[in-house]
Design a protein around this nucleic acid. Structure first.
Lengths: 336, 336
DNA sequence: CTGTTAGCGCTTTCAT
DNA sequence: ATGAAAGCGCTAACAG
């Protein structure tokens, strides 16, 4: 690996001059600057990152902790975060908590000190146990932290979330306007913050309706190997269901399959809405109406916030940003 | 952030003694070692990574370049790589090439010098254009590199791949033994190395069969928005098709849906086999027989190879490791 | 405009 | 068993 010293020796200049030249310092003459840069390029010089970090006390690296890479929504988010970060000239260190509090703590431990800031969507376990001591410690250490999608209320930091409540509230009203009179919400996310918000949106919409007489019906469905069997059984029992809101798209896709197998016409007899990540919809037929989660916006906004904190060190109040999700209607494909 | 110096001052010891104590040097007495460690714990001391890296000329970080995080197979791989790395006490820097040669070059540039080794599955574009200059440069720089899944033949480095040829060869023979007489291979990966191997496995199995009289039939299907429409049209034309090998699982899932919509009995009338990542299969019903790609094994083996190179600096010949994939049969779920 | 010097936090000889 | 000192590669006062 070639160093500043090497360049300096070859050019018969001092190390500091070379350094300044490469960093476009106004102190250096045009001529030497060019000379230095030329040689650097020729020798394929690359500044030693560790040395720069040590010296400047900055790593130009952001730590990202996500709960589950196999969830396409988080996959998308990671993808967009990575994309955005390289624009700002930041690196990404990715940790996957796998929905485990233990792993999340370890990841945070690891990142603390070796990154300039942290982007985190907390694990399921963290939310259900509501254990945030590790997060508090990092924030108290003055490490900039932004929570996205999954957050802990009590931690004072910027948060970027979707309007889960309103999204489901609107979706439910959409069904009510269509004249649906037996609307069910399938819930696989109990315990999660987002889950609760979504459920509340549904419940409130139902309760506020003057035409709808049924009580809100939230069905807990474990999203495991038997999800299709369990769902099939439920739907066979509840013959009058004419609308389903699936709290995530996996459930939505499974519900569609089950309904098709039972010979239901979609969306005439039963309509289905699910949360989105484009990825899954491709595999469902008829295609699913979805409440689009805008992963791009969310990634962008989270990054912007974090980098703002890192670079401007503003001591503004912590802010919570809400990304609006919008209901997307998809054509039902012809049954050939 | 607390440093060795801080600890030393408080304990009235020298920095070097403290350093040695924390690193369990035999030169340090039991008593002081304990004392030092106790204070370090109490003060929550964390060694400055940049300083250690600079000094030891090692980063304890591995760079991973993946073409597409939204492909669940790569998602799984990343997940398993991350998991394995933390066991070996290595960090991961993730770059996503998004199947672009340009982005891959940039990522490599970025990683070169700031990681101890690189794990890469090359982008589609890299394989089709067969442009490997950037990879050659890194390898020539003596940076340990391991290619996994997607590789470039001409680069001299360890490779960990699946036996795509044999997997499809076996699957085809499986169909032949079942008495299938119109077996079609759906190809969306032309241009990719793995794609070619899979196609060859199919073609050879067909050609070597003495009972099967048809010629191999490789159908190019672009995996785009119209994939279902195009596929439906094809299948309606080719009425006698009784077996389909889908070169990736997206295609497999789509094929299943299309067949179901056309009222075909699966697997009696038409049988389908696809490449796997568990993730997608969940959404297909009847479930798809798959050629399982063992992402866990692949991740583990790649890591083992890379860390071996990094730490032992062995100058062994470059080795190519083939991960055996195995055919998994899934029950067709009852059509309720 | 260029060079000298100090030091970021750590490890590692080499004394003592 | 402990400490002093050098130096990893870089930047940034400060001096000239």
């Amino acid at each position: 690996m070639i160093t500043l010293k090497d360049l300096a020796k070859e050019l018969k200049l001092s190390v500091s001059t070379v350094s300044k030249a490469l960093n476009d310092s106004y102190e250096i003459s045009e001529a030497t600057r060019e000379k230095v840069k030329k040689l650097a390029r020729k020798k394929n010089y690359k500044p030693n990152k560790a040395a720069v970090s040590l010296r400047k006390n900055k790593t130009k690296t952001i730590g990202v902790i996500i709960p589950n890479i196999l969830n396409p929504f988080f996959g998308r988010l990671l993808h967009n975060i990575e994309k955005g970060a390289s624009k700002y000239d930041y690196n990404i260190i990715t940790c996957i908590s796998n929905e485990s509090l233990e792993k999340e703590k370890k990841s945070l431990e690891l990142l603390d000190g070796s990154v300039d800031g942290i982007l985190i969507a907390v694990a399921k376990e963290t939310q259900t146990l509501n254990d945030a001591s590790h997060l508090k410690e990092v924030v108290d250490n003055k490490v900039p932290v932004v929570m996205f999608d999954r957050f802990i209320d009590s931690i004072k930091c910027d948060k970027v979330i979707t309007d889960d409540y309103k999204a489901v509230y609107d979706a439910t009203n959409h069904f009510l306007r269509e004249g649906r009179r037996h609307i069910v919400l399938l819930n696989s996310l109990s315990g999660l913050n987002v889950g609760k918000l979504r459920v509340n949106g549904y419940v409130d919409a139902i309760k506020q309706s003057v035409v709808y007489k049924e009580r809100p019906k939230v069905v807990e469905i474990a999203n495991d190997d038997l999800v299709d069997v369990n769902l099939a059984e439920y739907i066979r029992k509840e013959k009058t269901v004419d609308a389903i809101i699936a709290i995530d798209n996996t459930l939505g896709a499974v519900a569609l399959n089950v309904l098709k197998n039972q010979g239901k016409k979609i969306p005439d007899e039963v309509s289905v809405i699910g949360f989105s990540s484009k990825h899954i919809i491709v595999f469902t037929d008829p295609k699913l109406s979805t409440i689009a989660q805008q992963s791009r916006k969310m990634a962008k906004e989270s990054l912007r916030r974090l980098i703002d904190r890192i670079e401007k060190k503003k001591n503004k109040e912590s802010k919570t940003i809400i990304i609006k999700s919008k209901l997307e209607h998809r054509e039902t494909t012809k049954q050939t």
